[in-house]
Nucleic acid binder design. Structure first.
Ligand code: SF4
Ligand code: SF4
Lengths: 147, 147
DNA sequence: AATATTAAGACAAATTTTATCTTAATTTGA
DNA sequence: TCAAATTAAGATAAAATTTGTCTTAATATT
């Protein structure tokens, strides 16, 4: 029940990039150094981000990465799902047919409800939010108080 | 970003038990059969639940498991944490000192906020809720709509 | 005391995570 | 023009976690 180190690195790497002027080409080496993460691991992570299309990669000398999608449009959920795969609290929340018990399972509905909440929370933050010191709590107060 | 199969089995195993009259001694074999889960795996899961204290185990013929805590008082969060370990969306949400970057990390606060929400959601459901057909959505409407 | 039944605990396979190491592409400059 | 330098891409591998099974020990029954 956690995001991977890779997702943590990816998010902070993208935030680092988003702080640069739009269009800046960034090297993995610099991204890694400035985010306290292993460069070779970060390299593979950005490889995956490039495949997904949210960043563009240039190979060779003067290569590097730029955004292919505006940081404002890259949600935390997107990043986590690109790196860790779909966010699925329990297998039945993608499609009920993935579990033979789903038809008469008592707890199925809880997972879909909590998943919805988590999914929306992760979608409500963008990379740009953290790059521009515009962070603010995007969760309604009730979310933190309903206990 | 998901609960383990083991936690899913544990929750449903406990719900199965909670449907029996209070005090009923249940065999792993029956619990497993009625929850569509591998008996030997369920055995190890209930071993862990017994160690945690929420159920009591009896060894030998006529052995089995009974609740040691009322199903009303066993939250989903408790079960998941007993089986999967602490629910921690990202390492920094337990204690900031677990991450050297926490001091000047842009995204740290998001994780603590979302963690609070998730934690409260999982705490708001008990095993008894699912055993007695008393399930109802315990999340405030805003949680599902704030996007 | 032998047998049957049950959970406890040791062991192991499979998968996922977290990386590193090698290769290929591109630019630069001798 | 071609070697050297630089950068990402891709292959490989170690470590940790998950998902189980198999063997042992405890207890009750006959
Ligand atoms: S909660 Fe119910 S429906 Fe979902 S995976 Fe578990 S058994 Fe299947
Ligand atoms: S989000 Fe920031 S504080 Fe939390 S683990 Fe990642 S780097 Fe550390």
């Amino acid at each position: 029940m956690n995001i991977s180190r890779a997702s943590d690195y990816a998010i902070r790497g993208l935030v680092y990039m988003a702080k640069k002027p739009a269009g800046t080409v960034c090297f993995v080496k610099d991204i890694a150094k400035n985010t306290n993460s292993p460069a070779s691991f970060m390299s593979k992570i950005f490889q995956t981000l490039a495949k997904s299309g949210i960043v563009h990669s240039f190979i060779g000398t003067k290569g590097g990465f730029t955004f292919n999608t505006r940081p404002e449009d890259i949600t935390i959920k997107m990043v986590v799902e690109i790196i860790d795969g779909p966010i699925v609290l329990n297998r039945c929340v993608i499609n009920k047919s993935s579990c033979q018990n789903a038809g008469n399972c008592d707890v199925h509905f809880m997972w879909t409800d909590i998943q919805k909440m988590l999914s929306k929370a992760l979608s409500s933050y963008s990379i740009a939010d953290f790059a521009n010191d515009t962070f603010k709590n995007k969760l309604p107060k009730s979310d933190l108080n309903f206990a």
